[in-house]
Design a binder for these strands. Structure first.
Lengths: 129, 129
DNA sequence: GCCGTACTACGAAACTTTTCGTTGAAACTA
DNA sequence: TAGTTTCAACGAAAAGTTTCGTAGTACGGC
């Protein structure tokens, strides 16, 4: 099967990616134990997902003794940006400012977060022009 | 089938919602003609999607003469916020500032857009505390 | 060497999403 | 009114996703 040009994880896949991002390379058992704290999920289900994800190129696998250690193929930020871009196109017609404004409106952002965002905007203003 | 508590359109459904948001209430034929400019899609496919979406409550239908006119049930902004919230949880672990920063980093925002965002943050700062 | 444990591989069932062929009804046309 | 066009309803095939049962393999203890 050829790689899709844009690789978009399914919901179950993304849940596993988040575990790997947070905990670093892990065995199937480790991933499954963490996943199982959220929702009931069998060991073989997690294994199958990791196998599929490795097929797709979302994860890589290293054999360590008798068990396999899985890790993500992409930095968290790269995948987040990809998913955000996708949503931006599909739901916001490409308007980043609309998206940002919705994001800010939705969540009660902390003062610290607002400061971070302000700083980022200031940086972009300087770079840009 | 019971309504899911959070109603999340699939990709194909979202594409149709965008058409309805942009063009207002439309007949199946009108929706299909616009959808077909993006990708080849049969009339009955569009019809079936609109029927499913009406079942789910994503759209509403009014019979106008012999044809039916479909419209969205939710404001564009409401659905956008819902999808954004979903992505925020699933991919960003709930960190709105991370999401916003990725969004700003991704797209070249214009000066005007940056001003809008700055203003929004200022407003929130005043409200919040 | 034999048995139990810990693991992966395989395949398929259950479910969801996407697509469209076929049918029948309504309305318009000559 | 008979033929043609335009439409919605229905059902089901095709494709993709999620789940897990079963089987087989390697390793450690006895």
């Amino acid at each position: 099967m050829a790689k899709r040009s844009v690789l978009k994880p399914t919901d179950a896949e993304l849940a596993i990616l988040r575990i790997l991002w947070n905990h670093g390379p892990s065995t199937v058992r480790q991933v499954n134990e963490i996943a199982a704290t959220d929702r009931p999920i069998g060991y073989t289900t997690t294994l199958k997902l990791l196998q599929i994800m490795t097929d797709k190129g979302l994860t890589v696998r290293e054999e360590m003794g008798r068990s396999h250690v899985y890790a993500t193929s992409h930095e968290e930020e790269v995948m987040q940006r990809r998913l955000l871009d996708d949503l931006l196109e599909r739901a916001f017609g490409g308007s980043a400012s609309k998206l940002v404004m919705q994001a800010l409106a939705t969540r009660p952002t902390s003062t610290r977060e607002r400061d971070e965002i302000r700083r980022l905007i200031a940086e972009k203003s300087n770079e840009g022009e």
